[in-house]
């Protein structure tokens, strides 16, 4: 029994990181109805960003701040180049354009780093909490995910810029009539979504080894989590991530780890079919 609980606790902690990644995806969808298929590649970029910064002598946790800024800038550039020109075209177009961005990132990444695994090798301690053993890295990653989410909510609900983002998400035309420069808001939102994805990648890099292709699996987990929570609903995405982590944690002691993906995708397709607005209600 204690092993199961330990595994569930591990799942809960990693689930918060999945949730952070999912928020990045769901925020972009919620604001501009774009499913960002470059999400996984951006997560991988976050992994390599923290790796490079670590190589340059920056502690991974300090590196997070730099990664967030890089993510914001990179997201704005991607938006301006690949999304803005076709923001009003049919959804197929933005799916394909963000996917082409993914191909470019992965292509360049493969050329530079090949597809062999890397890791961020920094001292990690184990802690005992209420009788369970947890690594400090996992605990910090989960805490960081919660803090970033809290910061995001503060931004969305307490700052003028954040309120403008919500207004544009709610009704772009009405927001424009109110004098909100919607194009800037969309660019910033895409930047924030990208920054969150890179942050989650950076956090994952402090836990596991990674390759340039590692983003793919977390992209799919982000889809599952945000669909569970209702596409476009950030709180839902966080809970979706936690549910995903809990599922992984609670089945891990009983079945081969590779089966968890099958379970997750089956849940994903079933949720899409029967609860297309998610378990917590989303935007359609």
């Amino acid at each position: 029994m204690p092993e199961i609980l330990a595994s569930v606790l591990d799942g809960l902690l990693i689930g918060l990181v999945y949730g952070l990644a999912a928020i990045g995806l769901t925020l972009i969808f919620g604001v501009m109805d774009v499913v960002n298929l470059a999400h996984g590649a951006v997560i991988a970029l976050g992994m390599f960003a923290v790796y490079l910064l670590f190589g340059a002598g920056l502690h991974p946790y300090l590196g997070l701040f730099v990664v967030a800024l890089i993510g914001l800038a990179f997201g704005v550039v991607v938006y301006l180049v690949a999304v803005r020109p076709i923001i009003n075209a049919p959804p197929l177009m933005t799916l394909l354009s963000t996917f082409s961005v993914s191909m470019i990132i992965i292509g360049v990444g493969t050329a530079v780093w090949s597809t062999s695994p890397y890791n961020v090798n920094f001292p990690v301690t184990t802690l005992r909490i209420l009788g369970y053993t947890v690594t400090s890295a996992r605990l910090v990653a989960a805490l960081a995910a919660v803090l970033v989410t809290g910061f995001l909510y503060y931004f969305l609900y307490r700052t003028t810029l954040g309120k403008a983002v919500r207004a544009v998400a709610n009704n772009r035309e009405a927001a424009e009539l109110m004098g909100i420069p919607s194009q800037q808001i969309l660019a910033i939102s895409f930047g924030i979504g990208t920054a969150l994805a890179m942050l989650s990648g950076a956090l994952i890099a402090t836990l596991f080894p990674f390759t340039i292709l590692s983003g793919g699996i977390y992209e799919l987990k982000s889809f599952v989590a945000s669909v569970l929570g209702g596409l476009g609903n950030p709180t839902g995405a966080l809970f979706g991530g936690v549910i995903l982590g809990l599922i992984e944690g609670s089945v891990a002691p009983f079945i081969k780890i590779s089966w968890t993906n099958v379970i997750e995708f089956v849940i994903f397709v079933l949720i899409l079919l029967f609860f297309p607005t998610g378990l917590f209600g989303g935007r359609r």
């Binding site: 969808f29 109805d33 499913v35 959804p91 197929l92 799916l95 799919l220 889809f223 599952v224 669909v227 596409l231 081969k256 590779s258 089966w259 993906n261 099958v262 995708f265 089956v266 994903f268 397709v269 899409l272 079919l273 297309p276």
Partner: peptide
């Protein structure tokens, strides 16, 4: 739209992971 596209990715990945096991 996007929901269908996502589901088709999910189906392919689910089948791949299923077959791999």
């Amino acid at each position: 739209g996007a929901y269908f596209a996502l589901a088709t990715i999910g189906i392919n990945e689910a089948v791949k992971d299923f077959v791999a096991n």
